[in-house]
Design a binder for these strands. Structure first.
Length: 257
DNA sequence: CCCCAGGCACAGC
DNA sequence: GCTGTGCATGGG
């Protein structure tokens, strides 16, 4: 029966928009609605909806969904317990960083399911954000399992498991727009569903974890860092994509600000 | 028409 | 080890 749970979390130095217009995997299959200030995403067999009130200085999240442990899940996933003031103090190394911190106050690194993260970042290689989103959504839509509301209507799809995707053919991944990454997805799903334990390797330290991740075809240095950081919460990881590289070169090796 | 996008595997040194 | 190259696809 319909007993929708609602919980509340108060926040400081958190901003939903900055977080979800940034670089985390949830961006690729969750739905962020800027007008309504809501984020909707599948978590297990339920659909989570998060609504943000206030601003990065003083905010509030209202969470709705059918699951009892949801509040804890959201706090973990959005890393709401991160000590942002301490982090800002550490990374405020120059005026460029100070400006960035001010401008994007409340942008959080998120903590995601390792497999979801792996899929998203395999798709991300040599690709643009719009297409990454399109491909990811298409795969979830097509191969995820139904998430039902109380009346039995399909409201969303869950993120497909390793076993789900191991059954998918390269041709089907191509039909989702994956292009040359189709065979990486196929091999990753087969490998991760049979020869590798994504939960278990989470207990390894950063170096060893990264080494394990790079055994997956289609996962190289940068994607492994993304998975380590956003799939496992290894804060030592520092993924350098073309934008980070470009910015660092511009700011620290040419102009100087 | 060309170029590029949240890199990667692979070949050839 | 290091460097160069092809890669599916869509948008600018």
């Amino acid at each position: 029966m319909a007993q929708e749970r609602t919980s509340q979390i108060t926040t400081t130095h958190f901003d939903l928009r900055h977080t979800f217009e940034s670089a985390n995997p949830l961006t690729f299959f969750g739905d962020y609605n800027h007008g309504e200030r809501t984020l909707t995403y599948p978590a297990g067999r339920t659909l989570v909806k998060v609504r943000f009130f206030g601003d990065s200085r003083k905010g509030k999240l209202i969470i709705t969904g059918g699951n009892a442990g949801l509040k804890k899940e959201v706090i973990a996933r959005l890393r709401l317990n991160d000590d942002m003031e301490k982090i800002y103090a550490i990374i405020a190394t120059d005026s460029f960083m100070e400006h960035a911190i001010k401008k994007y106050d409340g942008m959080h690194v998120t903590l995601n399911n390792p497999w979801e993260t792996t899929v998203c970042f395999i798709i991300s290689q040599y690709n643009n954000v719009k297409r990454i989103r399109k491909i990811t959504k298409s795969i979830v839509e097509r191969f995820g399992q139904d998430i039902l509301d109380d009346n039995g209507n399909v409201v969303a799809k869950s993120f497909p498991t390793t076993a789900d995707l191991a059954e998918v053919t390269i041709k089907e991944f191509m039909e989702c727009g994956a292009g040359f990454r189709a065979r990486y997805l196929k091999e990753a799903a087969e490998y991760c569903s049979s020869s590798m334990d994504l939960d278990k390797i989470g207990r390894h330290d950063y170096d060893s974890l990264k080494e394990e991740l790079m055994e997956i075809k289609g996962v190289g240095d940068k994607v492994a860092d993304c998975i380590a950081l956003m799939g496992y919460g290894k804060l030592e990881a520092f993924p350098i994509d073309v934008w980070v590289k470009r910015t660092m070169e511009r700011v620290y090796f040419k102009e100087r600000t």
